[in-house]
Simulated scan of single mutants.
Amino acid sequence: MKIRILLLCLLCFSLGYAQQEDTPAYWNMDVTPFYGSILLHNTDISHLIREHPSGVILGFNKQTFGHEGWEAPFNFPDTGFSVVYQDMKNSTLGHNLGVYLHYNFYLLKRKLQFRIGQGIAYNTNPYNKEENFRNNAYGSHLMSSTFLVFNYNRPRLYKNLGVKAGISLVHYSNANVKAPNTSTNTFAFNAGLIYDLKGDPNEEFIRKEQPEIRESVKMNLVFRSGINESDVINSGQYPFYIFSAYADKRLGKFSAIQLGSDVFYSNFLKELIRFQSISFPELEVDPATDFKRVGIFVGHELFINKLSVITQLGYYVYYPFDFEGQVYNRVGVKRYFGDKWFAALSLKSHAAKAEAVEMGIGIRL
């Protein structure tokens, strides 16, 4: 039933996506089977790597021609959406079905294509302490998922039909919304077909002169929240609250640098402190230890139309309880609504160890 709901949401989105076109558009679709291996990024999942997983990527792509000012500087990328089905070839891990939004970027006269997609996936057989206790990779049915594809791309080799082949990487994780969350990464080889659906692929590309952007330093205020759980299974999901303030300075049309501070109220740490103080006296954890943290960070923002991609590297200057180390990182996307307000979705981690998916709202003054 949940898979049907996921497919229904995709259908509704695709219809809405198609109806938003207000410029000439060229659409194509691709079907790309893949076959690969689960990477051993953590020895805790070694018992889950048995055979070679396989699957298929179904993509719908709308080519840009420069009608919007951001398109030409990025070499006229495609926007689109994908469906990815993957058989993990292990009954413990089950099957994954995901829906994604993606960008296709091109190199070498559009013969090399790089696709990056972000979405949500449904797993058929997550961890269950009674029925599936060996699955320490997926703690929930719904997971965040990212995939990367790098292909040699040759459309229209015969009429509307073309081919593509290359490599792909598919990542599944629930970002510690619910334990366990060891996650998986599948590296695969892929080859498939491209088919033109609509529009003229030979429409002339438009290159518009872009005005220079000159801005003074701007102040940003952001509130982020969500739920997460410690690595202790069944310790409970708790809300967290993050207050951030940072200054940014535009370096040009597409980049800005950032410097700021975060204040973290992570309630799962309060429970983890209590648990360790009782269950592991040898750790000498004081049950009254403060669960709050304060960090400072530097960052970068890449602007792509009304979206932007943020990367930040931080260090806790107030760190009363030792959890995963004092260095943290954040990657995410922002969507601007007008000149000031924005929504944000980001992943906060310590190196490759995810702590939380953060949903936020902010203002740039």
Rank of each mutant, 00 (worst) to 15 (best):
L7G: 04
F13Y: 14
S14Q: 10
G16H: 13
Y17T: 06
A18G: 15
Q19K: 15
Q20I: 05
Y26N: 08
V31T: 15
T32L: 05
S37C: 10
L39N: 13
H41D: 11
D44R: 15
S46L: 14
H47K: 15
I49M: 12
I49K: 13
P53N: 08
G55H: 10
G55P: 10
V56G: 03
L58K: 10
K62H: 11
T64H: 04
F65M: 08
G66M: 00
W70K: 08
F76Q: 02
F76N: 03
G80I: 00
F81A: 14
T92V: 13
G98V: 04
L101C: 09
L101W: 12
L101V: 12
Y103G: 03
F114Y: 12
F114I: 01
R115M: 01
G117M: 02
Q118H: 12
Y127D: 00
E131I: 09
E131Y: 11
R134F: 12
S145I: 08
F147E: 02
F147K: 00
V163I: 15
A165W: 08
I167A: 03
L169T: 04
L169A: 10
L169Q: 06
H171S: 05
S173E: 03
N174S: 03
K178T: 05
P180S: 02
F189D: 00
A191N: 05
L197Y: 00
K198L: 04
K198N: 05
G199V: 01
P201R: 05
P201H: 05
F205D: 00
V222G: 05
I227W: 11
A245R: 14
Y246I: 06
K249M: 13
K249H: 15
R250P: 08
F254H: 07
S261A: 15
F264M: 11
S266D: 13
F275Q: 09
I278F: 15
S279A: 15
F280G: 09
P281C: 08
E284S: 14
V285M: 10
P287A: 09
T289E: 04
D290S: 14
V294W: 12
G295W: 02
F297D: 04
G299H: 09
H300M: 11
F303D: 00
L307W: 01
I310N: 05
I310G: 05
Q312K: 14
L313A: 07
G314L: 01
Y316N: 04
V317M: 04
V317C: 09
Y318K: 13
F323K: 04
F323Q: 02
Q326E: 03
N329D: 13
R330N: 10
R330E: 03
V331L: 08
K334N: 15
F342A: 04
S349Y: 07
H350K: 09
A352P: 13
K353T: 11
M359Q: 11
I361W: 06
G362D: 02
L365P: 11
